[in-house]
Design a protein around this nucleic acid. Structure first.
Lengths: 163, 163
DNA sequence: TCACTATGGTTTCCCATGAAACGATAGCGG
DNA sequence: CCGCTATCGTTTCATGGGAAACCATAGTGA
């Protein structure tokens, strides 16, 4: 029950288009991860990202504002806000007043939040290992580097176009 | 006017998470492409994909149903339908009855559609070249192959989880 | 021929996401 | 101290995209 196309299509221009390959690969990976997180922790990807970053921050004894979360996750500030609200309602994140700036709060994981963090990170890392199991170390490194270059390139071209 | 974070965050677990890197790289590339297509042709990515596939089909003297378009683009059938409707309304695609199956139609590019196709493909290829300009041939090949493996891997893991 | 099921396509509904508008506070220049 | 502007966070609105329901036709078995 693999693929049952009526008649296999010959390799077309779309198939060989690298941005397309990148997009479908990324979608496949994201779907897998989203499914796993959702199934086991009822977390969506934005929420998980916030937990990951807050977990890091906690390890360094820091608390973060939504603004720094936005910078750290590269997500929209609205997405960050929504994720934080959900996590707060679930009791995984607490807000503390920021006496230097009345507009923002410092966010950190609660005890329960840290417990989730410690369950969730291994799942993330295991999934990463599953996905890249047949990549040797050099290939992983290569992949990372290629992704980073592409990303820089795209950002660069976009800002040139945006005038 | 590059990045003005209050205080640079140390490399965290999120930064080093490969699926995250994949996702943001893919997003950056997709945004760039979407922006360019939209600006110059008022086409969205799904519409462009349909044009690319229909252009291929036309080159082989074939016409496709929405079903085969769905298979060829890996998009949802609803997305394909919507894209086709838009293209039809713009006069870029025409439907011909399928006498073997009254439920579906054969779709093909109109003359105007082919004209767009021939303008749009060079833009796509140029963008691809822009993006991968500093990849040598071996790196491109490597990148393709890594993406394909990851994609297969993800699909494979997903179907195992789906029981 | 007559159900019954399967499938291509379409419509409807819902959720996720980002842009823009908004309120509140901060920061600055007078 | 008083305005003016910038910024953080929140809310509101518009759009995109997928899931499920739906319709019409095809295919199948009695």
């Amino acid at each position: 029950m693999g693929d049952n196309l009526d008649h296999a299509l010959p390799e077309g221009q779309l198939e060989s288009f690298l941005p397309y390959q990148l997009s479908i690969a990324s979608n496949a990976v994201s779907s897998l991860i989203a499914e796993r997180y959702h199934k086991r922790f009822a977390l969506k990807i934005p929420e998980w990202r916030v937990i990951a970053v807050l977990g890091d921050a906690h390890a360094r004894g820091a608390a973060l504002t939504q603004r720094s979360l936005t910078a750290a996750t590269l997500m929209d500030k609205v997405a960050v806000n929504r994720a934080c609200k959900v996590l707060e309602n679930r009791g995984l994140v607490a807000r503390a007043p920021n006496k230097d700036d009345g507009r923002s709060h410092f966010l950190q994981l609660t005890g329960e939040g840290r417990a989730i963090h410690e369950e969730v990170m291994p799942l993330a890392l295991a999934t990463e290992r599953d996905l890249f199991a047949d990549f040797d170390a050099a290939e992983q490194q290569q992949f990372r580097s290629l992704l980073k270059r592409i990303r820089g390139r795209a950002a660069n071209l976009a800002e040139k176009t945006n005038d």
